[in-house]
Design a protein around this nucleic acid. Structure first.
Lengths: 241, 241
DNA sequence: CGTGCATTTGAGTGGGTTCAATAAATGTGG
DNA sequence: CCACATTTATTGAACCCACTCAAATGCACG
């Protein structure tokens, strides 16, 4: 379970599931060796919090396994989920004083964590890593901006359709080595209805109603609470607009 | 007016209004000299487009003067403004194939543009610049994510109040060398009602109604179409929640 | 099998949109 | 410089989508 005691002797990176997809991908053997000593692996249970919004930004991390949410809260206590983090995604705020959002595991997860100060220093000394991090951040910014269109301009049906297609796509690529068969048609949601609502800027009731509507229209099936089968991806895509 | 003919002989950067605030701030004299040769200054009229969404990403730029909007469109033609760019802000998508959003000048503007390929190469060769760009991008991502909370969870009044406070703050720091007297109370909007609506994910009518409401409540005054006077910043802040 | 929580479903309300008309500001040409 | 056209903003009325509140159902746990 907890393998952190072996940090200094074993190089976990070499057998890491996301070795070729995370920001460490471009590093050479020697660099990976140094980075491996800085980081430690940590298991997080579903529901457990990794970072707290507003807290001092002490950690950064790579997601190895599982799904986590980034979120912030309104002054009246409602939540807005800012994004989901899947395997190979980077978490945390390098070169920052405070964590701009909270991070909580939605499923049991496995992450590779670094003290932010160690990571910052290593990054500044290794331009290849810094470049990779920059490319990631730029891509993340693009994705976040596209999501603004969803929040600002789409109606509930469009939001749900977009969400289902997106998560089906992301979940299908989660198994790293496995063959990629396109977006999976059968997905196990890592989120509750409330959390879906918090992603899309809706209420739990609206999410529920829209899902049953999509089901009645035979675009999806809902065999269980957390299960969704996409029956008609083209139709969904059309509803997403 | 057009000074680009003098590019190779004169170093504009040395007298640049945003020299100490833009990403070039950390470069030394020699580096600035090289960068100066790569870039050219360009005047843009209000309403003129600098980048088109989906086009090949050929340019990046620094804003020297004026305000520009970044925007994207829904399939049915409505617009969502993704952000505003003020002096010293960076524009464009380095290391990317296509422009993820359109850029249009809201006021007459003055920008320092680079061919993206030149800029990419220079950046990779100068880690200090790359680091500055990374910090910018991280900060921009934080800001964009905070804006998601506004789009997803705030009502029309809260959106307007937040918007007014934010723009008052940004516009007050636009004059670089001048003394900073806190957020200005009198602002000249660089946006039309329609554009404000596109920023906040509302309609033009709702924007108009909320503004008159804030005026009737003596939180602001509207001496002219494009003029706003903030009478009670604390009250506004309270409405922003 | 019963308790507790998540989800669904129903009914009613309301905030923001839509459509329509008016008013104010801006531009244009004589 | 003014009359007229055009654009932009405001205001009004009706509607509708998503929210709120409430109840019922379903599922997971002991």
């Amino acid at each position: 379970m907890d393998q952190s005691h072996a940090n200094s002797t074993v190089n976990f990176c070499q057998s890491c599931a996301i070795r070729n997809r995370a920001i460490c991908a471009d590093l050479d053997e020697q660099e990976i060796g140094v980075l491996n000593k800085l980081g430690r692996r940590r298991r997080i249970q579903a529901g457990e919090q990794l970072l707290w919004e507003g807290d001092e930004a002490l950690l950064v991390a790579n997601v190895i396994e599982g799904v986590l949410k980034l979120s912030t809260q309104t002054s009246d206590g409602r939540e807005q989920i800012l994004g989901l983090a899947y395997p190979s995604d980077f978490l945390g705020r390098p070169f920052g004083e405070t964590a701009p959002y909270g991070v909580e595991a939605l499923t049991d997860a496995y992450v590779c964590v670094f003290e932010r100060r160690d990571f910052d220093r290593f990054t500044r000394e290794h331009p290849r890593l810094e470049h990779k991090l920059l490319e990631r951040t730029l891509a993340e910014l693009d994705k976040t901006r596209r999501w603004m269109l969803l929040l600002g301009r789409l109606n509930a049906e469009q939001k749900l359709a977009t969400f289902l297609l997106e998560i089906a796509d992301r979940l299908s690529e989660k198994t790293c080595a496995a063959i990629h068969l396109g977006p999976s048609e059968h997905i196990t949601l890592p989120l509750s209805r409330q959390q879906i609502a918090d992603v899309l800027g809706l209420t739990i009731e609206t999410v529920s109603r829209q899902l049953t509507k999509l089901k009645n229209d035979s675009l999806i099936d809902l065999p269980a609470r957390r299960e969704v089968v996409i029956l008609d991806a083209a139709g969904l895509s059309h509803r997403a607009n």
